[in-house]
């Protein structure tokens, strides 16, 4: 078992190497959120949001980008990477090697987690230093929320590979599921609470991850931990895990 944990650590290391050398992966899931943050924060930097008790725009926007970044490196990146590796025959090769499946997938997930932590640190540091964003809430609660969100979106990333037929369709399907939800969930600007869009968004975990993350940044929040949001993410994560464990494929579809 200790050997297996060491092996898992090594796999994360190899996946890291691979990730940073891949301009598509690192560009889209790492550079993109930082770029979006800089552009939005620069154009809206001095704005206030009346609906949220007149807090500064960045005070809302930074936690939303943190959640967005984590969803990108877990859900989007994992779904596309795993589909590509399946269609290229890499997963099939791994299946025939003695490396246990959980260690291989664990290496990919671990890579997402490492990138997610780095991205979170950069975004929060940028917000605090450049825009005076503060974290009035409980840091531990924030970390728990981010961890639950990351786990939920990792599971969803693996689950979504089961409905992606081939590598060409992967980016299209994954982004088509992800981006509309990002918009209606208030990632790039707050959505008014009573609207139909908010009700639709409330069914999916994206909005709950954003409001859950925002709780620790919200000076008017009663608690930094929003149990309802966490519950929705845990439920989606559990269903996704069930789908992934039942329907996950190791072989390319063209056969």
């Amino acid at each position: 078992m200790t050997n297996d944990l060491e092996l898992l650590g090594r796999q994360v290391g190899w996946e890291q190497r691979s990730y940073w050398r891949n301009p598509a992966a690192a560009g889209f899931s790492f550079v993109f959120p930082i770029l979006i943050m800089v552009i939005f924060a620069t154009t809206n930097g001095n704005g206030k949001i009346a609906e949220l008790g007149n807090i500064s725009y960045t005070q809302y926007y930074i936690p939303a980008i943190v959640a967005f970044g984590i969803m990108g490196v877990t859900f989007t990146n994992l779904a596309i990477t795993v589909t590509f590796k399946r269609e290229a025959g890499t997963l099939k090769r791994v299946r025939g090697a003695p490396l246990p499946a959980w260690i291989y997938l664990g290496g990919l997930i671990g890579n997402s987690v490492v990138v997610g932590i780095l991205l979170t640190a950069i975004v929060i540091a940028f917000g605090v230093i450049a825009y005076g964003v503060s974290i009035p809430g409980n840091i531990a609660a924030l970390i728990v929320t981010l961890a639950i969100g990351a786990a939920c979106f990792c599971a969803m990333g693996l689950a979504v590979t089961t409905v992606v037929p081939n590598a060409d369709a992967a980016p299209a399907i994954v982004n088509l599921l992800f981006f509309p939800l990002l918009f209606i969930s208030g990632t790039f600007f707050p959505i008014s609470k009573g609207s139909v869009l908010t009700k639709i968004a409330g069914v999916f975990p994206v909005r709950h991850f954003i409001t859950g993350t925002f709780a620790a940044f919200d000076p008017h929040a009663r608690s930094s931990m929003r149990g309802g949001d966490l519950l929705v993410m845990v439920a989606w994560g559990a269903v996704a895990l069930l789908v992934a464990s039942r329907r996950f494929r190791w072989e390319p579809s063209t056969k």
């Binding site: 190899w14 190497r17 290229a88 090769r93 025939g96 003695p98 490396l99 390319p252």
Partner: peptide, 29 residues
């Protein structure tokens, strides 16, 4: 699996790792 070696008809592995790296990675398996 530790005692067999499989050479598949079609397979690519890790496009961004080098020949040496991908083999070294496998030695730990």
């Amino acid at each position: 699996k530790e005692r067999i070696g499989i050479v598949l008809q079609e397979s690519t592995t890790e496009p961004y790792l080098t020949v040496e790296e991908v083999l070294r990675q496998r030695t730990f398996w």
